[in-house]
Amino acid sequence: MNVPADRKYTRSHEWAKQEGSLIVVGISDFAQESLGDVVFVETPEVGREVQAGEAVAVVESVKTASDIYAPVSGKVVEVNEALADEPELVNGDPYGVGWIFKLEPSNPAEFDALLGPDDYTKVIEEES
């Protein structure tokens, strides 16, 4: 299972990557694989203030719907508009063009507390 080293992870299978002053969020390869074909991504409203751990987006496959939680607190500043027409990007390239939203973090310490790639790899080993 692909777990890139350039970012952090959550137990609920989101990844978070620093990009300048922003945090980009998506779901892991493990998550997209367990969901199966993604058919719809409900993205949050730009401008919404969210708390770490708050459900802010939903990723749907044919038979499931999974909440996506904000890895850190902050303000939603951008969502991936391309997913509206091509939700399958989440399957094809979960760490790249399949990103879901970007946050302007309000508490940088939260990012540091997220799981590193090794710890996340252990999480998915436990689950599979």
Partner: peptide
Amino acid sequence: AAREQHIRRAK
């Protein structure tokens, strides 16, 4: 169907 109770339950 992801809108519906048998999948989305409380939501």
